[in-house]
Amino acid sequence: MHPAASVILFSTLSGLGFGFLAFLGWGALAPSGWAAFFLWALGYGLAVTGLLASTFHLGNPRNALKAFTQWRTSWLSREAWASVVTLVLLAPVALSGIFGLGLPRLVGQVGGALALGTVFTTAMIYTQIKAVPRWHHWLTPVMFLSFAVAGGATLSGRLWAPLALLSVGAVLLAVWRVGDGAFVRAGQTLGTATGLDRLGLPSVLDPAHTAGNYLKREMIFVVGRKHAAKLRKLALLLASALPALILLLPLGVWGIALAAALHLAGALAARWLFFAEAEHVVGLYYGARG
């Protein structure tokens, strides 16, 4: 799939933002005054920037409000609801923290749970797509949630944050290991795509069109294997190992900031791969899938 900057930024930033908001909502940090203002602003800033980035992916964004109508069937619509409800529900919690209003903790806890629920709905947008076998697996939401939890734990300075970061690495390794065989396991070939497996072994004779089209640009993105291998190592190092190590050093707030920045860079690399390496079955018609 085409690794569009808009969807990479959307899923990464909103994932980190909602992850951090979950920790703030649960009261992992109980800041007050200006400290509370800046921390909540960081959480809201990341989440909202991510959501805004997603609108750049739309060809016709003036209809965006209609995306709230189909929550019964569509994960994208559920994601729209979950994100807005979370942001609205946590607003009084943030104000209570900043101005010391003493709002009951339960509101924050519900909002925090919804924040992780939002990350789950984001993941399900991709997981539900059977035509992309690499995504169509329960490890996809596990991966999205592990990033959100590790990012939130890092930003809120949890003692166990290094463990959460290392578990992101383990999940990434599992995702790649399972994902690399997913297309073959799905069992679709040019033979099943055309039904010509009844006759024999089909292959492409002439392309249907010599120039590009939407399908080829959007769904038949081919990533160089060498670059992918390098990026995987880089993603592991940046998203998982390095920030975990830095958090163990006595660097205080600066350590947290550095670890979070490295983690975010690694998350972006991992998310780029998530799209770039995902093989859509429509590529079969164009002879693009071996």
Partner: peptide
């Protein structure tokens, strides 16, 4: 339509084009 392209992703047959 908001042009999100998700339906084209969901279609195995490449039947939809933005």
């Amino acid at each position: 339509c908001i042009g999100c392209g998700l339906c084209a992703w969901a279609c195995p047959y490449g039947a939809r084009e933005m």
